[in-house]
């Protein structure tokens, strides 16, 4: 079972109280972009085994979107943070690097 703490209401929410929203920090390519960029934005995901940033919605709770950093293989959660950011905040990066010294934000 995956338990993520909602950064808005502080509830340690079980996975079943949340709605998944896929990978976080995607850069949108919309009208006017090249076909390759648009395809990559829509479909191409690295699907990493290891450290991953995800969007989640506290659907059966406060209803807010938030972001989470976790390991897809071990389900270890490094932290959750507010969605109003285009890159992981420094404390999340530090928390990941404390556990995964060879990992870096690319």
């Amino acid at each position: 079972m995956l338990v993520l703490t909602c950064p808005y209401c502080g509830v340690a929410a079980c996975e079943t109280e949340l709605a998944p929203g896929g990978e976080a920090h995607l850069k949108r390519f919309g009208p006017g972009s090249s076909d390759e960029d648009f395809e990559a934005y829509l479909f191409l995901r690295p699907n990493v085994k290891g450290v991953h940033f995800e969007r989640w919605r506290h659907a059966m709770g406060c209803g807010k979107w938030f972001l989470a950093a976790r390991d897809t293989a071990t389900l270890e959660v490094f932290g959750t943070y507010r969605a109003q950011t285009s890159a992981p905040p420094p404390e999340i990066v530090a928390a990941i690097q404390a556990k995964r010294p060879d990992w870096s934000l690319t």
Binding site: V11, E17, M60
Partner: peptide
Amino acid sequence: TPADMGALVPGEMRRTRLAQVP
């Protein structure tokens, strides 16, 4: 519900799931 009822004290409202519904 998956919420921790032992930790819920009077004066706090927990929004959660009851079986299949919010």
